[in-house]
Amino acid sequence: MLANIADFFSSGANLIFFVFALFAIGGAIFMISFTKVVSMVVSVAVTFLSLAGLYVLLEAEFLAMSQVLIYAGGISILMIFGIMMTRHDSEEQDMRRPWQSALLWIGILGLFGILFYVFQQTSFPQAEFKAPEDNTLEIGKLLFSAHVIPFELMSLLLTVAFIGAIVLAKREEE
């Protein structure tokens, strides 16, 4: 079992993957654990940037740049503007009880223990992957042929969410 761990960490790419994965998972856990909204946004931004690093390791540079520009940049800034435009009580209080935090950490440790055991006992087949010459071209072909309806539905959903945010902001001014 420990030989598998030593083999895993002997490669630099695996070590970098492990660091990015820890930051992504840690950011997500901190996002649901924090009580201050700005801290939650920073945690989400760390998760988004870590996912972009994982995309770089997978040689999906277009997805990595899209992740940084759209999610880590745009969505995080949009969330901060949303926080600034809404009213909040001056005093934020922690609504959780101590036993909820203890159950959270027990659940996290249990999940990681189960995942560690399963990954150690599983033998993954080695397959040859042939990457396309131009990732961006292939993504564009798939996006505008096979996945054009989900793409258009997502743009419609984002437009409706944006209009809803404007309506909510205008109601709050009055």
Rank of each mutant, 00 (worst) to 15 (best):
M1H: 13
A3Q: 15
A3C: 11
N4G: 13
A6W: 15
D7R: 15
F8V: 01
S11K: 15
S11P: 07
S11G: 11
S11C: 09
G12S: 12
A13Q: 14
N14P: 09
N14K: 14
L15S: 10
F17C: 09
F17P: 05
V19K: 05
V19R: 05
F20N: 10
A21I: 05
A24F: 02
I25P: 00
I25T: 08
G26H: 02
A28H: 04
A28Y: 03
F30T: 12
I32F: 14
I32D: 09
V37H: 09
S39H: 12
S39Y: 13
V42W: 06
V44F: 12
A45V: 08
T47F: 06
S50L: 01
S50T: 04
L51W: 00
G53L: 09
L54G: 02
L54S: 01
Y55D: 03
Y55H: 01
E59L: 09
A60R: 12
F62W: 03
S66Y: 07
S66N: 13
Q67E: 15
V68C: 07
V68H: 01
L69T: 09
G74V: 00
I75K: 07
I75S: 09
S76Y: 05
I77S: 06
L78Y: 10
L78V: 07
L78M: 14
M79G: 05
I80P: 01
F81G: 00
M84I: 11
M85P: 00
M85S: 11
T86P: 01
T86K: 08
R87S: 15
R87G: 15
H88I: 05
E91F: 11
E92G: 05
Q93C: 01
Q93T: 14
M95S: 10
M95P: 06
M95F: 12
R97N: 06
P98K: 07
W99Y: 09
W99G: 07
Q100W: 07
S101W: 08
S101R: 14
A102H: 03
A102F: 02
L103D: 08
L104S: 12
I108T: 08
G110C: 10
L111E: 10
F116D: 05
Y117D: 11
Q120V: 11
Q120P: 03
Q121P: 03
T122D: 04
F124Q: 04
P125H: 10
Q126D: 14
Q126L: 11
Q126E: 15
E128S: 13
E128Q: 14
A131M: 13
N135W: 04
N135Y: 08
N135G: 13
N135T: 10
L137A: 15
L137T: 10
L137F: 04
I139Y: 08
F144L: 13
S145G: 04
A146V: 05
A146F: 02
H147R: 05
V148P: 00
M154W: 02
S155L: 13
S155C: 04
L156Q: 05
L156I: 13
L157N: 01
L157D: 03
L158P: 00
V160I: 05
A161P: 03
F162D: 00
G164D: 01
G164Q: 02
A165V: 03
A165M: 06
A165L: 07
I166E: 02
I166G: 02
V167G: 00
V167T: 02
L168Y: 04
K170S: 01
R171M: 09
E172V: 02
E174K: 11
